[in-house]
Amino acid sequence: MKKIILTLTCAFFSFCGFSFDWPQKETNSDSFYSYFGQLRGGTINSSLIFKDPSEVKAADKGRITAIISDHSDDFGWFESALGNSVIISHEDGLSTVYANLDDSSISKEIEEKQFVESGEYLGTSGNTGWQEEQSCLEFKVFDSKNSSAVNPRILMPRAGRELPLAMGTITLKDKNGVSHNLLNERRLPAGKYYVYRTRQNVAVPYKIITAVNGATVENISYDVLKESAGKLCVKGNESYSVKEIYPDDTKQLAGIVQLNKGSCTLTITIVNILNSASTISYKLDIY
């Protein structure tokens, strides 16, 4: 059974200049269970998923707009089964979602409250959502005025090391759907290509920048996921759906390029949230 304490009628505004505290005890950045923007259950993950069980607290003061005690129904573009959850709206207009909570840990006091203070106890992480028996918090930030999910990490304090990003194998897919592995194929026909890097299981780059002859042709960012046609999409030159960003379990889109006849240099750069970058370049012969 689902209990809605208050209706989801809060106003949403710009989140520029705003910040949240940690929704649970501070943890190292290299120990998250899954990053925002990761492939998850056939969708683009709109959550930051913590790895260790913990008490969960309000990331900032705000109004409790909903307490969900069941996850049998979808909540629009929230994109996942939330399990037992608390949803809070804030003065800046954003909403935070604290999902995958243990039902018995959500106190009557919280259920009867309209407002909470920053750091106030909400419950304990459980395994009621999509965590596959992982007792960890699923934390979301939404801006429904702009129909977007916000990467929680751009609003939270940094702590510890980042999980290393690995470029992996770079492949290009041509208009006929044929893949070209740049490790052993550098002579290609002119045309439009989808550029892919190897997908990592947990970490997601904050940005992926693709350049041809030193000029940036694509900049894919994971700061927000924008809603398009009822689905959350990644921002680049276009709004990319999950099928475009993750065509399968092994690949992640780095960009779309037009390669013209002649010699050219294709460069891919992956950047983490601390602005630390890793770059690889290939000299190609285009005929």
Rank of each mutant, 00 (worst) to 15 (best):
K2T: 01
K3G: 03
K3W: 03
L8A: 05
S14Y: 10
F15S: 14
F18K: 14
W22K: 09
E26W: 04
N28L: 07
S31Q: 14
S31G: 06
F36N: 08
G37H: 05
Q38D: 08
G42C: 07
G42V: 10
G42Y: 08
I44M: 00
N45G: 06
S47V: 04
I49K: 11
F50N: 01
K51G: 09
D52L: 01
S54P: 04
E55G: 08
V56R: 11
A59N: 08
A59P: 09
K61T: 09
K61L: 00
G62K: 12
R63V: 02
R63Y: 04
S69K: 12
H71N: 13
D73I: 09
D74E: 09
G76V: 00
W77R: 12
G83K: 08
S89W: 00
S95G: 07
T96P: 03
Y98L: 03
L101G: 05
L101Y: 01
S104C: 00
S107P: 04
S107F: 01
I110Q: 05
I110F: 03
K113R: 14
Y121R: 15
L122I: 05
G123N: 07
G123D: 07
N127Y: 07
N127I: 01
T128G: 03
W130R: 14
Q131V: 07
E132P: 05
Q134R: 15
S135G: 00
S135I: 03
F139E: 01
K140F: 09
K145A: 09
N146I: 04
N146Y: 12
S147Y: 02
S147L: 13
S148N: 11
S148L: 06
R153G: 01
I154D: 00
L155D: 00
L155M: 12
E162T: 12
E162S: 14
L163R: 15
A166H: 13
A166N: 13
G168R: 10
T169A: 09
T171L: 10
H180L: 05
N181P: 06
N184M: 06
N184F: 12
E185R: 15
R187Y: 03
P189D: 04
Y194E: 08
R199Y: 05
Q200S: 14
N201Q: 13
N201H: 11
V204T: 07
I208Y: 00
A211R: 15
A211N: 09
A211W: 06
V212G: 09
T216S: 08
V217R: 13
S221G: 07
T250D: 13
Q252Y: 02
Q252V: 15
C264W: 04
L266I: 09
I268V: 15
I270K: 11
V271D: 05
I273K: 15
L274T: 12
S278C: 05
S278G: 06
T279Y: 01
S281D: 07
Y282D: 10
Y282K: 15
I286F: 02
